[in-house]
């Protein structure tokens, strides 16, 4: 699709910044009737479609970037110890609850709430690995998987008990929600926040993994655990670090999703966790850019599916997509070729 965007007006009204994009395309109708303002009323069917399309794309990327934040934890842990950490969704849930407590009880702003959620999730995940996974590292592959399921159920039950029931809690509106208009698309403040936070965290993660000493050790360990320890790398510390990073991202994701959907409950980690896991596999489990891509891909597919009227099958879209992609590319979109055994 050949298309060119151009900023025509950049109006600063009161304290609020409104960006207005105009768009050209080969279609004359598109140009004329999608122009914000008077002409918008005369939208033809075709332009309505495109307007919807761009709007849903934005919504999809927003939802998808929360999936991506969580998918990263699955993919990194898998990359290092080949474990699907089924309790990762619960880390995200606990992140959301921590955020809720911070904003309702301590009345802090959302940035502090996100930081607090990360701060709670990190030791939780490190502890989880120490207690439930590390002792099983040399046993069969199934054992830590069962253990992960156990941790997952334990955490769900624990939160339900403390909270006093499984019913959802409202996540209060913590930021003034303004709507920004960008051409045919409307963004809410929370959407912008999610996009900005998720991008920042992912850029930070990429930087860490690519350039820092511990990041390089992570990559080395994920490729060859034994050779890494021959380098003097404390593999256990790398594993803890990996869990910590994944948990920090999931914790932040929990608060952001709470703010987005305004409701959280002790079992919220189950479906999101499963979808994020799908996203990780979709992108190629073990691959960090893969998890990002997979998450965003899944978010878009889900939102588009709902917009197209398949609301009831919302959950099925993720898994259907997973099956289709894996049929054609068993290692996922950005997956590494099947490893040669040394």
């Amino acid at each position: 699709m050949m298309m060119r965007c151009e900023i025509l007006t950049l109006a600063l009204g009161r304290s609020r910044l409104i960006l207005i994009f105009y768009r050209y395309s080969c279609s004359k109708c598109f140009y004329d009737s999608c122009r914000p303002g008077g002409a918008l009323k005369a939208i033809g069917g075709r332009c309505m479609f495109w307007q919807q399309f761009w709007q849903q794309l934005v919504n999809g990327v927003t939802l998808g970037s929360t999936y991506a934040l969580i998918a990263l934890g699955y993919t990194m842990v898998y990359g290092i110890i080949q474990l699907i950490n089924f309790a990762h969704g619960e880390v995200y849930m606990i992140g959301a609850f921590t955020g809720l407590i911070m904003v309702t009880v301590y009345k802090v702003n959302f940035i502090i709430a996100i930081l607090a959620a990360m701060l709670v999730c990190v030791p939780l995940a490190i502890l989880m690995e120490r207690i439930a996974y590390r002792p099983l590292r040399k046993s069969t592959r199934l054992a830590p998987l069962i253990s992960a399921l156990g941790v997952s159920i334990f955490l769900q039950t624990l939160v339900t008990l403390i909270k006093g029931g499984p019913n959802p809690l409202a996540f209060p509106q913590v930021i003034q929600d303004t709507v920004y208009v960008l051409g045919p698309v409307r963004f809410s403040t929370v959407q912008v926040l999610i996009l900005v936070m998720a991008s920042l965290l992912m850029v930070f993660l990429q930087f860490t993994v690519k350039y820092t000493k511990i990041g390089k050790a992570m990559r080395a360990t994920s490729e060859d655990y034994e050779a890494a320890s021959l380098m003097g790398i404390n593999v256990n510390r790398v594993v803890s670090f990996t869990f910590a990073v994944g948990a920090a991202l999931a914790g932040a994701g929990g608060v952001l999703v709470g703010m987005y959907f305004n409701s959280i409950h002790p079992f919220m980690g189950v479906s999101v966790g499963l979808k994020a896991f799908c996203a990780a596999v979709l992108g190629g489990i073990g691959s960090i850019p893969g998890a990002m891509l997979g998450g965003i891909f899944l978010g878009i597919a889900e939102v588009m599916g709902v917009a197209a009227g398949f609301d009831t099958y919302k959950e099925a879209i993720a898994f259907g997509l997973l099956i289709i992609v894996l049929l054609f590319k068993p290692t996922g979109l950005l997956g590494l070729p099947i490893q040669r055994k040394v």
């Binding site: 390089k216 050779a227 003097g232």
Partner: peptide, 30 residues
């Protein structure tokens, strides 16, 4: 194992076992 390295023993393992997805420089840094 990682403490044995700090004590001054280093091994070139059988089959080289270089980190194929890391650059030459990164391998050396490891």
């Amino acid at each position: 194992p990682h403490q044995i390295v700090s004590r001054g023993i280093s091994q070139v393992p059988e089959g080289r076992r270089v980190f194929t997805r890391l650059t030459v420089l990164e391998n050396l840094e490891m």
